[in-house]
Write a protein that binds this DNA or RNA. Structure first.
Length: 310
DNA sequence: GCGTCCAGGTCTACC
DNA sequence: GGTAGACCTGGACGC
C-alpha cells in the first residue's frame, strides 16, 4: 500500500547525484551531440533541455542544469509526473551522461601520462549520448560526408517533421517506425538527407520491424570486433561512423577518424603535415583499449578551457 | 543573384 | 585487397 501511494506522488523536479569525477558542462560539450535536437542549450541561462520518451509512451520535456553535487532536472511539459516516471527519467539521464559507467580505469591510465594528466581533473571522457542507440546511429549517419551545418539541418528536420511535439518548439526524436513510414523522396527533399535517404529508411525499417535489435548494442555480450562488424553491416555506417558509435557504447578500441580529427592531429603532432591513418593509429597504440578516447581527448583538449566551446 | 567548385564519408563496380 | 567514381548538399568564391 505504501509503495503504491509513493508511485502516485507527483514530482516537479528531481536531482541526480554524481561522482566527484563528473563535470556537467564538459560532459554536455564532450562532442557535437548537444548541438543537435532534441537537445537545446541556453548559454545565457546555463541549462540544456531535451525531450524524453518513457516506456508508457508518454513524453516529458525536461530542463537540466549543473547543481552542487550533480544534476538538477526540472520538468517543463508536463510540469509534474508520477515519481515512478521520474525514476525512469533519471535512469535515462544517467545513461545519456554516461554515469552508469565507471571512468576510474581510464583516469588511472590518464594520470600516468604527462600529456593527459589534465583529463581527470577536467572531467573529460564521458561522451554524451542520445536516449537511444537508434537515435545515435541516425545522427552519426547524418554527420557523414557533409558539413556540420547540414547535419544540423537533417536532425532538425527529422525532429520537427517526424518527432512528436511535446511543447511549443520541443520535439522528441522520431521513432524508427515514423522514419520507416516515409518515402525516399520525402527524406531526400524535405529532410534534406540526400543520398543517405535509402540508408536511413532501410535502417529505420530494420529496427522498427525488430530485425535489428540495436538497443541491445549497449549490453553487447560478444567481442568488440563482432559489434564493429555488426555496425558496419548497416548501410551508411562506414569506418568512421562505426568507430565513433563504438565510443558511445563504451568501447574505445577504434579511432573513428574523420577529416576534422585528422586535421587536428596534423596540427598537434606533425606540424600541419598530412600523415597516414596508420601513423595516427601508431601514435595511440600504447593506450590499448582506451586509444579511441585518448585520441578524442587529445584533439578536443582546447575545448576544456571554455564552458561553451562551440 | 547566379554559376562553379570544393569538402565531406560511404558504397559499388571494377581491376 | 586496392582504387576510382558517384552520391548530395551547403558554403565559399568569382563574376
Amino acid at each position: 500500500m505504501r509503495s503504491e501511494s509513493h508511485k502516485k506522488t507527483k514530482m516537479k523536479s528531481f536531482s541526480i547525484s554524481t561522482p566527484s569525477s563528473f563535470k556537467f558542462w564538459p560532459t554536455v560539450y564532450s562532442h557535437g551531440w548537444c548541438d543537435l535536437r532534441p537537445f537545446q542549450i541556453d548559454k545565457t541561462a546555463e541549462h540544456i533541455d531535451t525531450v524524453l520518451r518513457l516506456s508508457d509512451a508518454s513524453f516529458c520535456a525536461v530542463r537540466m542544469r549543473e547543481a552542487k553535487n550533480g544534476i538538477r532536472v526540472t520538468l517543463q511539459t508536463p510540469e509534474t509526473m508520477a515519481s515512478g516516471q521520474c525514476a525512469e527519467m533519471k535512469q535515462i539521464i544517467l545513461s545519456m551522461f554516461r554515469l552508469t559507467e565507471s571512468m576510474d580505469k581510464f583516469y588511472e591510465r590518464a594520470r600516468k601520462e604527462p600529456a593527459f594528466r589534465w583529463v581527470a581533473a577536467s572531467g573529460g571522457g564521458r561522451l554524451l549520448r542520445s536516449q537511444s542507440v537508434f537515435e545515435d546511429v541516425v545522427k552519426m549517419v547524418s554527420t557523414t560526408n557533409c558539413s556540420w551545418a547540414l547535419t544540423k539541418i537533417m536532425t532538425d528536420n527529422l525532429a520537427v517533421m517526424l518527432g512528436p511535439e511535446v511543447a511549443e518548439g520541443k520535439h522528441a526524436f522520431p521513432e524508427p517506425s515514423a522514419i520507416a513510414a516515409q518515402s525516399e523522396s520525402f527524406m531526400r527533399k524535405e529532410i534534406r538527407c540526400g543520398y543517405r535517404a535509402p540508408f536511413l529508411l532501410e535502417f529505420a525499417e530494420s529496427v522498427a520491424s525488430g530485425r535489428r535489435a540495436v538497443e541491445q548494442w549497449r549490453d553487447w555480450e560478444g567481442t568488440t570486433e563482432e559489434l564493429f562488424k555488426e555496425m558496419r553491416s548497416v548501410k551508411g555506417v562506414g569506418e568512421y561512423a562505426a568507430g565513433a558509435l563504438m565510443k558511445l557504447l563504451g568501447r574505445y578500441e577504434y579511432l573513428g577518424l574523420d577529416s576534422w580529427c585528422r586535421a587536428k592531429f596534423y596540427e598537434l603532432h606533425s606540424r600541419g603535415k598530412t600523415v597516414s591513418d596508420a601513423k595516427i593509429e601508431k601514435h595511440y597504440v600504447s593506450f590499448g583499449k582506451w586509444r579511441g578516447l585518448f585520441l578524442w581527448m587529445d584533439v578536443t583538449h582546447h575545448w576544456f578551457s571554455q564552458k561553451f566551446p562551440f
